[in-house]
Structure formats: C-alpha cells, structure tokens
Computed example of a mutant assay.
Amino acid sequence: MRNPFKKSFWQLNDELAGKQDLSTQDKKRLFEQTKMYIFLQDFLKKLTPYLEEGEVIQAYLPMTNQENTAVATGGIMGMAYAREPEARAYVENFHDVRGNRLLVFTNQRMLFVVIVEFLEERLFYSYPYDSIQSILFKKHKIGYFDWSAATIGAIRKQTHYYTLDFQAGNHIFTEMLAEDDGVIFQRQLETIPALQGILLGEKVQRERKFDLIFSNASLQLKLLYGLSILVVLFLVLYVILLVLGALGWGPQKDLFASVCWCGLSGMVVHGLQGGSIF
C-alpha cells in the first residue's frame, strides 16, 4: 500500500502541472478529502476490536444517499440525535447523519455499519456467510439524456446499477448499488472463498412468506410501477370519455347535455328579465 503522505503530494504535483496555483475549490476539496481520510483511519481502529479471532477485513463498500438507496437513511427516516462527543463531532464536521454507511467484507462475514450509529452506540449488523442461503445480485440498465456534454440537443447515454438483496438469519439486507459499487461486490464474490459457495439467484428469497411480501423491495417497486401505469391509463381513458361526451357520444354525453341545458336556461331567463329572449 502506498504511503498516503506521498499520494497527497503526487496529487498536488498532478494539479500543479496544469496550473500555477490551486484554486479555492481545489484546496477545499483536498482539505475535505484529507480530513475524511484521517477520520476513517481512526474509525477503522475503533471497529477492529469487534472482529472475531482470526477474522481479517478483505474490502470495504461505502454507500451514500447520493448514489445508493436513501429510503431508510434520508428525510425523516434519516434523522438521528448524536449525544456522544465523537458522534456530534462527526455530524458537525461532515454534515451527515445516517447517509454514510459501510459494508465491510471479512473472511467470515459482512458487517453493515451506519457511521453515526456506530459512533453513538457502537451499533453494527453482522451477516455471517454461513447464514446466507442465497444472494440476489442483479444488474440493471437505465438510459438517460446528457444535456451538459452536447452543443445542440442532448446525447443519449446508458448507465447501470445493481440490486443487492439477501437474508442472513433474521436480518434482511436490501440495497441499490451504483456501477462502481457493483464492481467491488462482484470482486468479493470471486475472491472470498466463503462467498463463492453461496447461491446467486435472480429472485428474492425469504424464509417467511410475510417477509417475502412486506420486506421485498423488488416486489414493492414492481407493484408501484404497475400501479402508476394503471393510474395513467385511467386518466387517459377518462379524458377520452370526456372528449367523446363533449361530441355527444359515450356515457359522459348526458353530463355535457345537462351543462348545455343549464347554460341555455340561464340565457333564456336572463333574456326574459331583459325584455327579450334572444
């Protein structure tokens, strides 16, 4: 592993090669990066005593609200109160509550850590490999329009994301991984012997039917997608019926007939009061 002291100065050399001086934004970014690196080294020292005898960390998979699921770590669900000094210092320095979390791969298990929860309560979740029957690790493709790189119009691009889901004992883990995250997880599947023996499936597996319905993010997304399509179809059908009713056809024609009759009646009454019908 290269010395971080040298790496920092090598990065400065690369930036200085194209500039006479670092911009204010570059200095701020480098400062935040260095501050985070120092914090993480201290954080990992606090996590190490919780490893079992003979347990060795193999890799880290960091997750944030910006690139991963934010359902349980953003908004109201992401609120937390930091009471301990080190937890308060973390929130003040990095302006994060429950957004930053970490999936740690060891030779025996996976550890899931929400940074602020560990600093506050030394809380983390353990997923031994021998308690996992199968893992859903599925790659998805999504298209989007990039307006920033085009001079005229937009460029259609594609990116990928992954669905990660498994059950370890009574604990259920579900997460959406960015493309780089998926590469990290795939590498662990190929290099950690205990992970290689776990079945990779295309469907969510649960020990109880209740969890298969209510703790199944993939199923819930499909139901939400289907419901949204039904709502759109209903609105389109209703608009079509209104248009046909205005033309005197369909079940809505009586509605427009009554509206026209009320309007005509009002005109007649107004005409009588004014001394003429038309």
Rank of each mutant, 00 (worst) to 15 (best):
K46T: 11
L47R: 03
L47Q: 12
T48Y: 14
T48A: 12
Y50Q: 11
Y50I: 01
Y50G: 00
L51H: 07
L51V: 11
E52G: 00
E53C: 00
E53I: 01
E53K: 07
G54N: 07
G54K: 09
I57G: 00
I57C: 03
I57F: 05
Q58N: 06
Q58F: 03
A59G: 02
A59W: 03
Y60W: 08
Y60H: 08
Y60I: 01
L61K: 04
L61V: 02
L61R: 04
P62I: 10
M63C: 03
M63S: 05
M63H: 02
M63N: 02
M63I: 11
Q66F: 04
E67C: 02
N68Q: 13
N68A: 09
N68E: 07
T69M: 09
V71K: 13
A72L: 14
T73V: 14
T73Y: 14
G74C: 03
G74S: 12
G75H: 08
G75W: 11
G75D: 11
I76T: 11
I76W: 11
M77I: 01
M77Q: 15
M77Y: 13
M77L: 09
G78C: 11
M79W: 11
M79Q: 14
M79Y: 13
M79E: 13
A80G: 10
A80H: 08
A80M: 15
A80Q: 12
Y81K: 11
A82K: 09
A82H: 14
R83T: 10
E84K: 08
P85E: 05
P85C: 05
P85Q: 04
A87Y: 09
A87T: 10
A87M: 09
A87H: 10
A87R: 13
R88S: 02
A89T: 12
A89H: 12
Y90Q: 05
Y90C: 05
Y90W: 08
Y90V: 08
N93K: 09
N93E: 14
N93P: 00
N93L: 06
N93Q: 15
F94L: 01
F94C: 00
F94E: 02
F94D: 01
F94H: 01
H95C: 01
H95R: 10
D96E: 11
V97H: 06
V97M: 15
R98Y: 03
R98M: 12
R98I: 03
G99K: 08
G99F: 06
N100A: 06
N100S: 06
N100W: 10
N100K: 07
R101F: 08
L102W: 11
L103V: 12
L103A: 07
V104A: 03
V104Y: 07
V104S: 04
T106S: 10
T106G: 00
T106H: 02
N107R: 06
N107T: 12
N107C: 04
N107Y: 08
Q108S: 00
Q108E: 05
R109I: 02
M110F: 13
M110Y: 09
L111E: 04
L111H: 05
L111P: 03
F112Q: 12
F112I: 04
V113R: 07
V113Q: 09
V113M: 07
V114N: 14
I115F: 14
I115V: 15
I115R: 06
I115P: 01
V116L: 15
E117P: 01
E120T: 06
E120V: 05
R122Y: 02
L123I: 02
L123F: 04
L123R: 15
L123S: 12
